[in-house]
């Protein structure tokens, strides 16, 4: 297995700054905005976006966390050691504009599960999707509204997003194995 760094710390920072502005522009401000970070790495990304927006708009944006374990369609293949993480939606989401935040968009199945989970909490005005990396290979009709970087991959490759809050450093790596 080898890996290639395809986004550096600076590139991640720039992408998040751009997206923070896009979100405010598209929503004409940040009234009623709520960020929901998907466990594990969507959560720090959501927190960073909220911090950026607060810095230039001077308005705090609530950030929630979501674990989709209970909504997955592949329960049978789950690792028994998988730890279910915290779901914490701090505000009533009915009528709000939700931005769902995840690190990698791949098949779209996690997003499908997240949409089901969010709808159990209420009826938001709309749900938008932000991902740091879109690697393609969708199996469901789902697309992102905000994308850090589009990275075409082959199905055998893997994308790893590493974030300071969890992994100690910021970078995105493309993992590819020699074909056997």
């Amino acid at each position: 297995m080898s890996e290639k760094i395809i986004m550096s710390e600076t590139e991640i920072k720039r992408a998040l700054t751009r997206i923070a502005h896009e979100i405010v522009e598209r929503n004409k401000g940040c009234e009623d905005l709520v960020f929901v970070g998907m466990q594990t790495r969507g959560l720090p990304l959501a927190q960073r976006l909220a911090a950026q927006i607060e810095a230039f708009e001077a308005v705090p944006v609530p950030v929630g966390s979501l674990d989709i374990s209970f909504y997955r369609d592949d329960l049978a293949s789950l690792d028994l050691r998988h730890i279910v993480q915290r779901t914490d939606i701090p505000v009533h989401i009915s009528g709000k504009r939700l931005v769902l935040v995840d690190d990698v968009l791949f098949t779209g199945r996690s997003i499908r599960a997240a949409l089901d989970a969010l709808i159990d909490f209420g009826r938001p005005r709309d749900i938008q999707l932000m991902v740091l990396v879109d690697r393609g290979h969708r199996q469901l009709p789902i697309r992102a509204d905000y994308v850090g970087k589009n990275i075409p991959t082959s199905i055998q490759e893997d994308i790893q997003v590493r974030l300071k809050e969890i992994d100690g450093r910021d970078e995105v790596a493309l993992i590819f194995g020699e074909q056997t």
């Binding site: 209970f70 909504y71 329960l75 279910v84 779901t87 159990d120």
Partner: peptide
């Protein structure tokens, strides 16, 4: 802990099983 969060919701039901 995660199950208690579900019990604290208005609709205490998830489709897991």
């Amino acid at each position: 802990d995660a199950m208690k969060e579900i019990l604290s919701r208005e609709i205490r039901r998830v489709p897991t099983l």
